[in-house]
Design a binder for these strands. Structure first.
Lengths: 129, 129
DNA sequence: TATTGACCTTACCATCATGGGAAGGTCAAG
DNA sequence: CTTGACCTTCCCATGATGGTAAGGTCAATA
């Protein structure tokens, strides 16, 4: 199938499929006589694998590692688990950061009258915290 | 004071101070005869205002709006509150997304033996979910 | 058969906020 | 007068994605 169909079937834009190829994340697709990329069912499975990894927030670098492990029938599941755990830790750190921001901002917003007057604890907090 | 001192005092890199100037977020600093940027205490307060906004996760666009409101003595606190609330909603949405990823990944990681064998529910989930 | 419209190709530019580095000018202390 | 710390502008890179432009291909239809 051509790249458009592969894009629809995998949920990855044609643009990104070409980009993944250019960065070496995926091997170059075979080409028709006229230069059109051609994708097999196996290629499609790989693209879906990538999309699911992205949906779980893995970076391209991590997805590259996971793809290698996927292809390696002799892999140790410990290696996969290590990458996943590392990613979970990273996600949790980001969540904590965001939650701290929300906590601070919520307090300030609650204390703000939100009317026509200029006095505002949010602005004050930004002025000197 | 010069840009290096302003950078240390505000916690914003000299690089970013120049960038903020180039994008119009802040007005161009005055210059010495030899072209060095010069910063007053007022400038410093503005830079600190920006850094605190960044610490709270506001985008540059939002910080621009907040700066305008800060300078506007006739501002309505409702405008500030609206921006803050909007940002809180955005942060909460991002938190929910990340939490969903963590939930899925944690389940998978827990089910993964993490040993020398290749069988791995994480890889399986990426294969076909 | 000629045209049309949907598809494909590459190549370049933009995002957002930030850092790195090069090439060169300025300043103050020794 | 030299040295080292600072400053200037300019260009490039990031990560993952989208946009657009200029041009080639393909299949169906008039």
């Amino acid at each position: 199938m051509n790249i458009g169909e592969a894009s629809k079937a995998s949920g990855i834009s044609a643009k990104m499929i070409r980009y993944y190829e250019s960065t070496g994340l995926i091997t170059a697709a075979s080409r028709s006589a006229s230069g059109y990329r051609h994708y097999t069912e196996d290629d499609l499975n790989m693209l879906r694998f990538i999309r699911r990894g992205r949906d779980l927030g893995f970076s391209m670098a991590h997805i590259g590692e996971l793809l290698n492990l996927w292809r390696d029938q002799q892999r140790a599941s410990a290696d996969v688990k290590r990458i996943a755990r590392q990613h979970i830790d990273d996600l949790n750190q980001r969540i904590r950061n965001l939650q701290e921001m929300v906590a601070t901002l919520s307090q300030l917003a609650q204390a703000c009258h939100g009317d026509n007057r200029p006095n505002c604890p949010i602005i004050e907090a930004l002025e000197h915290s």
